[in-house]
Design a protein around this nucleic acid. Structure first.
Lengths: 256, 256
DNA sequence: CGCCCATTTGACAGCTTTCAAATCGCGTGG
DNA sequence: CCACGCGATTTGAAAGCTGTCAAATGGGCG
């Protein structure tokens, strides 16, 4: 966090080390990985659905997201990635990219050949387990998204997403306590939450009227965190933040 | 498949071996895992949301599912597990169960202590990678569910789920070519697809009227597979079936 | 200053949910 | 073997949330 311009792979080593204890040899093996760096423009694809993935990617700067497109042409955004995320570990072992990854803003990524990742995993079990852990957390977040889309009302879904972004950005040192900018269009937010851009707009305004958030142009800031948490039925347990004492902020209502 | 009552852990070894090449020593290490067997009644919990998971579970017989409950009390089913599935590898590395697992029918499971799984992963990298692979496929299926719930109409979602179950059951040798029984109530199907049980009932009837499926009591059989695939916008690529030549059955309509 | 795209608004249609009540299916007990 | 009781499935009708279509507004960039 206090490291201004770390070596490209140092961020990856630090990230994996947060999940599992790594020895010096593990870190060295990570730092010895072959890689290339690339800049991608906003909207540009990093991985394309249907292709055979050939590399794993670390997001160094900028934002990215994963998406899937259905037969009718509609798309669903499945995850948002913020700086520091290991973006495509899912394709490290699978032979077929079932979804695509795109840059949300212009971004800098570190690309590592898939084979090198596999070799690293085979050689350094602790690193393999850390990478596995990373994908498990990713899956946990996706479970929460699925639950949200399936069983929470539109306004709740949106508030929940805003809470999640706030917590994750703060954990990554990318946001101050009270506000952050979302580098996403309303259409993209709508594709995250499974609603129409028009309806999303209404829900945004409704959260603003409720006094939970404020907006200025495209930037959203949180006015009343507790209210947003309540409106969003939010509990950060599913994020599995490293070294985070679990506190069910949400009271268990109607345990049924 | 032609093995009537294999040793409890043999199924696990076979399953993992389908994902990645395992050496004899890898198999031996799997077979040497400590375990206990347990029968669970339909509806009974195997893992409970909020707890610290202590074991990993292999589903030997019967069906199970994972679910999450939201603040209002509604639940979302996140996955259905069929015999042979490794059910809770997600909790092998995470310290907090963000969802629960329940038996759908009465079931027999093999329970393996979490620590033993971790030790195995550390000792046998190839096994670790196979288990990782298993969870990646699980995540891929969840991505498809999320996409379905977020961006496909109710009838399409249901048809898609029926297609998925058919393909998976067939791949597991649990279904003949043309029909299978779904051991799920309509309410459970509704909780999978993010709709009301009442609406699910209407969608089931509508698929029946369309001539895609037939029903007799609680059992569903497929009358016209091609029609069901079309109605369900289904393409099995996301299942990442081992040794499966990828064929986009679905024509790309409106690539946009 | 003018163009283009994202955001807002409005009016409406339609898919889904709700609430209630009628049926059906099935295991149990007589 | 048949009646009874209970939960799952169906039906109906009406309300509500969300999507659709069209058009106005706003903001940023060349």
């Amino acid at each position: 966090m206090a490291d201004p311009t770390p070596a490209p792979l140092a961020a990856m080593a630090r990230r994996l080390g947060a999940w599992r204890r790594l020895e010096a040899a593990d870190r060295d093996a990570i730092l010895a990985l072959p890689f290339s760096m690339r800049s991608v423009e906003a909207g540009q694809a990093i991985v394309t659905e249907g292709q055979r993935p050939t590399q794993v990617c670390v997001l160094r700067e900028g934002y990215a997201f994963r998406q899937k497109v259905v037969g009718g042409g509609a798309r669903q955004i499945l995850a948002i990635h913020i700086p520091g995320d290991l973006v495509d570990l899912h394709n490290a072992l699978l032979d077929y990219a079932d979804h695509s990854v795109q840059a949300l803003t212009s971004a800098h990524v570190v690309l590592i050949p898939r084979d090198a990742v596999e070799a690293l995993a085979a050689a350094r079990p602790a690193v393999a387990m850390a990478m596995w852990h990373e994908t498990l957390v990713d899956a946990a977040v996706l479970r929460e998204w699925t639950t949200s889309i399936g069983r929470r009302a539109a306004q709740v879904r949106l508030a929940h997403l805003l809470c999640e972004l706030m917590v994750r950005l703060r954990a990554a040192g990318q946001a101050s306590d009270r506000s952050y900018d979302i580098p996403m269009s309303q259409e993209q937010l709508a594709d995250c939450t499974g609603m129409t851009a028009i309806h999303l707009n209404r829900m945004l305004m409704s959260l603003e009227r409720a006094g939970a958030i404020a907006r200025r142009g495209r930037s959203v800031s949180i006015v009343d965190w507790d209210k947003l948490v309540e409106l969003g039925d939010f509990d950060d347990g599913y994020l599995h933040l490293p070294g985070h004492a679990r506190s069910s902020r949400r009271k268990v209502v109607a345990a049924e």
